Simulated assay, not measured.
Amino acid sequence: MSSPSPALAYRLEAARAVVHDASRLAMSMRPPPGGPVATQKSAQDWLTETDGAVEAFIASRMKTLFPEDGFQGEEGGVARSGQLRWVVDPIDGTSNYARGRSRWCVSLGLLDGDEPVAGVIEAPALNEVYTALRGAGAFLNGKPIHASPVKDPASAMIEMGWSNRVPKPVFMEKIDAIMKLGAMPRSGGSGALALADVACGRLDGYIEIVINLWDVAAALPLLAEAGARVSPFLRDGGLTGAATILAANPHIAETLSQAVNIPLA
């Protein structure tokens, strides 16, 4: 394992503090349990007041701390360009957040050019913080994490994200392939947390046919450092638009990849 860059290590620590404060802001604005407190961008695609507030908070803090770094947000797009670029999803799992549920997170990743190098994912309602830095490992609440050791697909748990941008037959085809392997399908409503679950072994795989950079930027370093296998999301268009992602533990990755016809890197 190569030694991490001191500059990147410093940025990760700063990002962890900023995300923690942003998570506290999100918790203070969290709706009570019930019907969604949000506006609907499209079918099952929600936007809350908190999304904008948290993104603006993080954007302001990161500009002050690292004015030379680029910044990209889900709501605001690319605000600044730079070799190092922060990518934020202010609330990943907005449909859960809008109903007062707990499975949502604040996600902040760092890219060096087109390479994911660091990430912070905080799920404050779950009291969990994931961090990763290239060459320094992946962690959950400060403890090292690794991809699952499960080798038998019939013992595996696979999550697949749903999107209204995916035709129903395509979605059903992939779900059917997962079930034919004997794996247990799941859907939790947060792509970033699903990928983090693959990194820490709670899931054996995750698939999303259409997903964006801000959903995965912080999780990609987690997956790499935890030993998971991942499809070439960035190479396949994820840097500039939506793309498909598959992440899995290394023991079932090839089998799952072939079953759902999504190539690995």
Rank of each mutant, 00 (worst) to 15 (best):
S3L: 14
P6L: 07
A7F: 05
E13F: 04
R16H: 11
V18F: 11
L25Y: 07
A26I: 04
P33A: 12
G35T: 13
D51H: 08
M62E: 03
M62G: 03
Q72M: 14
E74V: 06
E75H: 07
G76C: 06
G82A: 11
L84Y: 14
L84T: 10
D89L: 06
D92C: 12
D92T: 10
R99A: 03
V106Q: 06
V106I: 14
D114H: 13
V120G: 06
P124V: 07
T131F: 05
T131M: 06
F139R: 13
G142W: 05
K143E: 15
P153W: 00
A156M: 01
W162P: 00
S163H: 03
P167Q: 09
P167G: 12
P169S: 03
E173V: 02
E173Y: 09
K180V: 12
G188T: 13
G188Y: 12
G188A: 11
R202N: 15
D204P: 08
E208N: 15
N212C: 07
L213A: 11
A224V: 05
G237Y: 02
L239H: 03
G241T: 06
T244W: 00
N249G: 15
H251R: 09
H251T: 08
A253I: 02
T255K: 13
Q258W: 07
P263A: 11
P263D: 09
